[in-house]
Design a protein around this nucleic acid. Structure first.
Length: 357
RNA sequence: GGGGGAUUUCCCGAGUGGCCAAAGGGGGCAGACUGUAAAUCUGUUGUCAACGACUUCGGAGGUUCGAAUCCUCCAUCCCCCA
């Protein structure tokens, strides 16, 4: 599927914004079962700069990950760094979050940067708006995203790099549909659904996937950007999504939350002080060779191994989750698997996060 | 033996008549985190029948309408002079 090998889908791609999946060494990352990871155009362009990455052999060699890499375009930063960004038809003008200098990111720049980084999949520059948002703004952003997608397509030259388009449209089903159809006509090798998990409810998000997916070309990868919690992943798969990425396993892991089949485990909580069990009984990750009590101790002691182990566990958990989903799909029993998982997670939630006492 | 300084809520440490259940840190407890400005952020941390009441600032008395804050004695610790 990519020049660096196939990726089994549905797949979860860990996020390595600045050329590292935070806290997780490449060896460990591979061991979790991850096949493809993310990098970020905006961040890497700011530091160390795409020229530097290129001169050091491209992003793969630079960071040591030999598998496929997808780079995000910086479109998400139009949303997340909105306070220091101005947008117009030409592109986005950022104030660097590092040193305050002005950065111009146009669709053409976004492509040029990603070509220098040498990722396997590049993303078009899109216009992400936070939700809720008034319809007129959503329409503007959607049309701009399509115009920018055309410009990205025109600027794209590397034939060893796929370029994915991104569907926008906020919470307006018909705007999503229009966007999907117009982008589908442009014949991109893959399509993403963007602008979700930016303030809306899970139900609204699922509804938007349903409003979009049917209008995307059949047989091409569908990537739900930035999503999400374990239950969001399964809900995405249920609605036909092939690719996911999210900072949640790494960030929440660093912040002492572990994911499990019984729901989230806030490992700092006093209830785990003398808990001899691993986070998850059958998990093969290095964190699960230790007790919850030990992991808690690491966090309370502010030892860096805590975040490292927890992030690693979460990535392993996410990989095992999509792996199990793949198996269930192959065996034609995904709905059962889905039901089973959702039931157990919601059970864990009703017992106030107290997983197994 | 003489002189001076200290003692504050779990810890450190502000506060020197009312606006003090008492600043600020730390620690504890709980929560948040969805294409990463995040190893970050938020709330909470005397007790209770709790928009009110009660008990706290080394101990015991006292002054005052009112004391962590002023006075007396006691205890403990530190410094200086013998």
């Amino acid at each position: 599927m990519t020049p660096r090998g196939a990726v089994q889908t549905p797949a979860f791609m860990p996020v390595g914004t600045v050329g590292t999946v935070k806290g997780v060494e490449i060896e460990m990352l591979r061991a979790t079962g991850a096949e493809m990871i993310l990098g970020n155009t905006y961040h890497l362009s700011l530091r160390p700069g795409e020229e530097v990455v290129e001169s050091l052999g491209g992003l793969h060699r630079f960071c040591g990950w030999e598998g496929p890499i997808l780079t995000d375009s910086g479109g998400f930063q139009i949303f997340s760094l909105a306070k220091m960004m101005k947008i117009n038809e030409e592109g986005a003008a950022f104030r660097s979050h590092i040193d305050g200098r002005k950065i111009h990111l146009t669709p053409e720049h976004a492509i040029a940067i990603q070509e220098k980084l040498g990722s396997d999949v590049a993303m078009v520059l899109d216009h992400v708006v936070g939700l809720p948002c008034e319809r007129s703004k959503i329409e503007d952003a959607m049309h701009r995203t399509i115009r920018w997608a055309r410009r990205c397509q025109a600027a794209s030259k590397r034939d060893d790099q796929a370029l994915f388009a991104i569907v926008q449209g906020g919470l307006e089903p018909d705007v999503r549909k229009t966007c999907a159809e117009e982008l589908a006509a442009l014949d991109f090798p893959g399509y993403a659904i963007g602008g979700l998990s930016v303030g809306e409810s899970p139900e609204e998000m699922y509804a938007m996937i349903e409003a979009t997916a049917p209008h995307l070309p059949i047989g091409k990868p569908r990537y739900l950007m930035g999503v999400g919690k374990p239950e969001d992943i399964l809900n995405g798969i249920l609605r036909g999504i092939d690719l996911f990425d999210c900072v949640m396993p790494t960030r929440n892991g660093r912040n002492a939350m572990g994911f499990s089949d019984s729901g989230p485990i806030r490992i700092r909580n006093a209830q785990y002080e003398r808990d001899d069990r691993p986070l998850e009984e059958d998990c093969p990750c290095p964190a699960c060779k230790r007790s919850r009590g030990y992991l808690r101790h690491l966090f309370l002691s502010k030892e860096m191994l805590g975040p490292i182990l927890m992030a690693t566990h979460n990535l392993a958990y996410y990989q095992r989750l999509v792996q199990r989903a793949r198996t269930a799909l192959e065996q034609n029993r995904f709905p059962e698997f889905y039901r089973e998982r959702m039931d157990q997670w919601s059970q864990g939630a009703t017992t106030s996060g107290n997983t197994t006492e």
